[in-house]
Design a protein around this nucleic acid. Structure first.
Lengths: 252, 252
DNA sequence: GCAAAAGTGTTTGACATACACCCATGT
DNA sequence: ACATGGGTGTATGTCAAACACTTTTGC
């Protein structure tokens, strides 16, 4: 059944990026120190973190694995490690910085060779302040122009983007994509970038101010030959996302 | 492999129904040349289904395992089985009927002895038409008066209830708890039972009618010494829940 | 003084809420 | 005729959407 889903993805070249292709997959989750011929009785658990940031007016996703074998950052949780902790660790290793938001998305089971794998997908948001490219072979890749991905990676990435867009409508999640201080115009641009649409300046400002999650700093930003913009800060404490993440998520 | 047999699994039939139970793991991708005593490097995957129904004016949860060891119905997916399919199978085995709604909730990893376990939690809704008690040692237990549960079970159950309540506000999920035809008063009572609060009759009817998800049947129900009530039916097709379940969830 | 982005209010329609009485039936 | 639950409409407030001009700065 799951195979049908995978094969139904008409991504074309994506098929070649499938985990089973090529020999250069030394970092495959189970390829590390597997005892040849050992009985592997449970599935391999694979935590995959789809990390977004906003840069250059575009929504970007962190990928690693090099340009010809792009992959979503991933890793295996150790038995004693909560899944959320594993996702945090993987995210930080792949990005070289702290994500501002992390949320479990969905879990799926793939019967694919070389091994039964349970994939736990996570969504991470990274503030655009942390600028540069991720360390190692990681890159930030424009969501509008993604390289070929393995079908499972593409599913997880597509779903992460869907959820990110949906959550923009009813949460304050977008603030996690901005640097510590920012102007209202920058905030609005972040929304517009993710939603791929325009928003009314006055209505946007009214709503976001009325929501009470912003604090205006005394500082202003002088940007060019025009009036300087007031800088705002995300009010600490209103931080935690609420009911979509279980209260006990700390132990996940 | 032997460890799998040791894992407490009093579900009886449900556990035995798993294709992977027993010794013949011939379909395992790389387990063909099994070496006894080898390292068990993957976790046990445990799908747990929190099934709700409305009966007797109360919200109830399906439990099995007997009165002194009440547990949430559970089972193990086989490697080739999508998690959603496993949840459906477990749900039907435990309830002896088809659930009307099934949604993945959250995945957590427990280092607890006797073995590393990854729990995938599901929410199921059962229409109150299907009346009686579940088969075997299963019972419907009032949510207001739950027996003692293992901590993990209680977390999953509490979270399922939280999500159910939250989703009532912005989805049509509650229709899955009702029989095929029902009166508007019954529908309203279901909402009130779950939310533990009163709703205004006229506003409730106006909204639910305006939403367009109901079709009035030509029939009426004569109930007592009062005017008969019109029977409604949940319009088919508006059925599937939308953006909280991934589009590819069929393969999960 | 002009270009360029920041900032600011009012009007309008849609929707949620509060609220009370008549209707159809069985006894 | 009366008891019981089924069924209906109106007035009010809240909130989101549409819409255009003035302000501050650098050059």
């Amino acid at each position: 059944m799951a195979n049908r889903q995978l094969e139904a993805h008409p991504t074309g070249p994506a098929a070649d990026a499938s985990p089973s292709a090529g020999t250069a997959r030394l970092d495959h989750p189970i390829g590390q120190d597997a005892v040849p011929g050992a009985v592997l009785d449970g599935p391999s658990v694979d935590v995959r973190v789809v990390a977004f940031t906003v840069a250059g007016g575009a929504l970007q996703v962190a990928l690693d694995g090099g340009p010809d074998a792009a992959r979503i950052p991933r890793g295996k949780p150790s038995p004693a490690e909560p899944l959320d902790a594993a996702a945090r660790r993987i995210s930080r290793a792949a990005l070289g910085l702290q994500e501002q938001y992390l949320e479990q998305l969905y879990t799926l089971s793939l019967p694919e060779p070389p091994r039964w794998t349970v994939i736990v997908g996570y969504l991470a948001l990274v503030s655009s302040g942390r600028g540069g490219a991720p360390p190692g072979d990681g890159v930030w890749s424009d969501t509008a122009d993604l390289p070929a991905l393995a079908p499972a990676d593409r599913m997880v990435a597509d779903y992460a983007l869907t959820r990110l867009r949906a959550k923009l409508g009813y949460t304050n999640i977008a603030f996690h994509l901005l640097p510590e201080t920012f102007t209202l115009t920058e905030l609005q641009h972040a929304y517009e970038t993710i939603l791929a649409g325009r928003l009314d300046k006055r209505n946007f400002r009214r709503r976001v101010i009325a929501s009470g999650i912003l604090v205006q700093t005394p500082d202003k930003r002088r940007d060019g030959s025009h009036r300087p913009a007031a800088l705002y800060r995300f009010r600490p404490g209103d931080d935690r996302e609420t009911y979509l993440t279980p209260p006990w998520a700390a132990g996940a």
